[in-house]
Design a protein around this nucleic acid. Structure first.
Lengths: 210, 210
DNA sequence: GTCTATAGATTGATAGAC
DNA sequence: GTCTATCAATCTATAGAC
C-alpha cells in the first residue's frame, strides 16, 4: 500500500501543479514537497521529469481516448448499418461528451484537462510530442468520420474546421480562473452538460456551414 | 543608429525565439547570442526578461489593437447610422481580418502571432497578465458588439461563443509546424485571405446558430 | 553603450547509506 | 523504498572597468 501510494501521490500532485503553473515553472522540488515525499522518489519511480509528465498523460488519456475512439467507431458503424453517412453532430458529440463529462469524473480530472488544453500549445518539443503521439489516432479517426459526414467539403476544409473545433473545445477544458478578463455577470462555471450543449450548438453550425 | 539597432535586434530575435521555443525555454543567453549582442544588453535596454517580453507585446499589439478597435467602432457606427444592429459577420471580420492580414505584414509578425496564440494559455501568471491587460479592451468591445449582433442570446452565451471563436482563431495564428499530426495531402500553409474565408464561414455559422 | 566577470539562486539528476 | 547530501549545469541580474 505504501509502495503505490507514493507513486500515486506524485502523479496527483504533479498533475495539479503542472496544470496550474506549467511544466517548466514547476520544479520537482515543489512537486515532492507538496506530495510529502522525498525528492529522489521521482527518479526512483519514474526516472525523470519528462517520464513523470508522460505517465500523467498516459494514466488519464488512455481510457479517455479509448472511449472517444469507441464512440466514433460506433457512430460510423451505426450510420453504415442504416445505409447513411454519419452526421457532424454525431461525430462532434462522440468527441466532446466523453471529454467534458470526464471533467467531473475524478478529483484531478479538471486539472488534467487544463493540462492537455495547454499541451496543444506546449513550447517544449519533447512534451508536446508525447501528447501528439497519444492524441494522434483519435484526431485521425475524428478527421475521417468528419470527412464522411461532410463529403462535399474538401479534406483541406474539414481539416481546418476540425482544428477550429479543437481550439474552441480547448477553451472549455481550461480552469476558469485562467480565462481572459470576464465581463460582469458572466457565469464562468458551467455544468458539463450545459457546456456540451453550448459547444455542440456552435460547432455543429460551423461544421455544417456550406 | 547603433543605439537603437541593438534594442531592435533584441526585440526581433527574442520574439522569434520566445515564439518558437517558449518564454521559459528561451534563456537570455540564447537571445543575446543569436542577436550578436552582449548578455548585459537586455538589462541595459529593458531591465529584465519580463520587461523584454512586455516590450515585444507592446510593439506589435498596440497598432494591431488600435486597428481592431477602430474597425469595431466603425461597424457599430455604420450600423447605428443605418438604424440597424451590427451583424456577427461584420464583428468577426473586424477582428479577424486585421489579425490575419497582419501575419504577412512584417517579417517577424508570424512569430508574434504564434506568441500571442500561446499567451492565451501561458502558465506564467506575470506573462499572461501582461497579455490579458493589453487584449482586455479589444475583448470587451468585441463582446459588446457581438451582444448587439445577437440580442436574442444571453450575455452568457455570447461570452462563451466569443471564447470558442478566440480558440478557433488561435489555431490559425500558430506556426504550421507546431500543429498536431497532419493527414496526408493537407495544405497547411494558406494565404491570409483563404484562411480568413475559412474562419469566417465557420465562425459566422457558429455565432448565428440559434 | 558595451563589455567581462561573477554573484546568488535554482534546477534535474544521482550516489550511497539505511 | 526512502533518505541525505551533493554534483554539475543553468539561470537572471548586476557591479564595475572601459
Amino acid at each position: 500500500m505504501d509502495k503505490s501510494d507514493t507513486k500515486q501521490r506524485l502523479l496527483d500532485v504533479a498533475e495539479k501543479l503542472f496544470a496550474s503553473n506549467g511544466y517548466h515553472c514547476t520544479s520537482l522540488r515543489k512537486v515532492t514537497a507538496k506530495a510529502g515525499v522525498n525528492l529522489a522518489a521521482v527518479s526512483y519511480h519514474f526516472g525523470s521529469k519528462e517520464a513523470l509528465v508522460e505517465a500523467i498523460f498516459e494514466r488519464r488519456l488512455r481510457p479517455l481516448n479509448e472511449e472517444r475512439m469507441g464512440r466514433l467507431e460506433t457512430v460510423r458503424a451505426a450510420a453504415g448499418a442504416a445505409g447513411r453517412k454519419p452526421t457532424a453532430e454525431e461525430a462532434l458529440r462522440a468527441f466532446i461528451e466523453p471529454t467534458l463529462r470526464f471533467r467531473d469524473s475524478a478529483p484531478g480530472a479538471r486539472y488534467f484537462l487544463h493540462l492537455i488544453g495547454r499541451a496543444l500549445t506546449e513550447p517544449d518539443d519533447a512534451v508536446r510530442s508525447i501528447f501528439f503521439r497519444m492524441i494522434g489516432p483519435v484526431f485521425a479517426l475524428m478527421f475521417e468520420v468528419l470527412c464522411e459526414a461532410r463529403p462535399n467539403l474538401s479534406r483541406n476544409q474539414v481539416f481546418w474546421r476540425l482544428n477550429f473545433a479543437i481550439g474552441a473545445i480547448s477553451r472549455c477544458t481550461f480552469l476558469p480562473e485562467k480565462l481572459p478578463v470576464v465581463p460582469a455577470g458572466i457565469e464562468i462555471e458551467l455544468s458539463a452538460d450545459r457546456q456540451i450543449d453550448m459547444l455542440v450548438d456552435f460547432l455543429v453550425a460551423g461544421m455544417e456551414a456550406p
